[in-house]
Amino acid sequence: MSVPLHYVVKTRLVELIEQLGEGSGLPPERVLAKDFGVSRWTMRQAIRELIADGRLRARQGQGTFVATPKIVQPLALVSYTEALRAQGHVPAREVVKFDEIPADDVLAEQLAIAPGDPVFELERVLFADEQPIGLETTYLSVARFPTLREVLDATGSLYRCLTGQFGVQFGEGEELVETVIASPREAELLKATQQLPMLLLHRQTRDTDGRTIEVVRSLYRGDRVGFRATLRP
């Protein structure tokens, strides 16, 4: 089976990336194409795939650089803040939306409330080392957490607030991971292009009594974040 030329070039570029090291600038596309003996189109395709893979990062007006390693998040019921700090990163959040909305039929069933009951919708951009890596939208029952707006530092840890202010004891959760393309709004918030692959996580978290605490939709940049799970028989 023949191997596409751009894949061969991509493999050689990976070797070059490893030699250059993190943060180093890649030679211009035209120079690389000449050195590798391929067309600029072929070189451009290989570079685009390495950007999507998270190995390279393009900076508008500056060039293409060797990217830092991806942040690996555990698929577990842990605070985003604590998980990033444990890896030596500086976490931050920016609130995009914190509203009350009526629950539709699906959300009402997930939260075990009646359709039309008020629900908090908390949407935040997630940052690591001042770079946007994710967009998280959390839904919680207003009846269960009536003072959430008053007690929550929306730029801090929601889990810490739920545990400390409401006595929530996290039990278990279900998470579905899929790949998607960001909407124009999502891409803008994450400072990404719509062509960049995204990882979408749907999570439903329950307490130790089996009651649903939250429903979460998290969108992560595929070039900056990966996920790890511990599997046991």
Rank of each mutant, 00 (worst) to 15 (best):
S2D: 01
V3W: 03
P4N: 07
L5P: 00
H6Q: 08
R12F: 04
L13G: 07
V14T: 05
I17C: 02
L20C: 05
L20N: 03
G21C: 00
G25Q: 07
G25F: 00
P27E: 03
E29P: 10
R30F: 02
R30K: 06
L32K: 09
S39C: 05
S39M: 02
W41C: 04
M43H: 02
Q45M: 11
Q45V: 14
A46L: 01
E49S: 08
E49C: 05
L50A: 06
L50Y: 08
A52M: 12
L56E: 06
R57P: 06
A58H: 14
Q60R: 15
T64C: 11
A67G: 00
I71L: 08
Q73K: 13
L75I: 15
A76S: 07
L77A: 06
V78Y: 05
S79V: 09
T81N: 05
E82R: 03
A83H: 14
R85Q: 14
V90F: 01
E100N: 13
E100S: 15
I101K: 14
D105H: 12
L107T: 07
L107A: 13
A114C: 11
A114K: 15
G116R: 15
D117P: 06
V119H: 07
R124G: 09
V125T: 08
F127E: 07
F127P: 03
A128P: 08
D129R: 01
E130M: 09
E130V: 13
Q131C: 06
P132A: 06
P132S: 08
P132W: 13
G134Q: 01
A143W: 00
A143K: 14
R149W: 12
V151Q: 08
D153N: 15
A154H: 05
T155W: 12
G156S: 11
R160M: 06
L162R: 12
L162S: 11
F166G: 12
F166D: 10
G167V: 00
F170S: 15
G171L: 02
G171V: 04
E172D: 12
E172M: 13
G173N: 09
E174W: 02
V180L: 10
I181N: 10
A182C: 06
R185F: 13
A187I: 01
L189P: 07
L189G: 05
L190S: 09
L190M: 10
K191T: 14
T193W: 03
L196S: 03
L196K: 01
L196F: 04
L199S: 04
D207N: 06
D209F: 10
D209V: 13
E214M: 06
R217K: 09
S218Q: 08
S218D: 01
Y220K: 01
G222H: 02
G222F: 03
D223G: 05
R232V: 13
P233A: 11
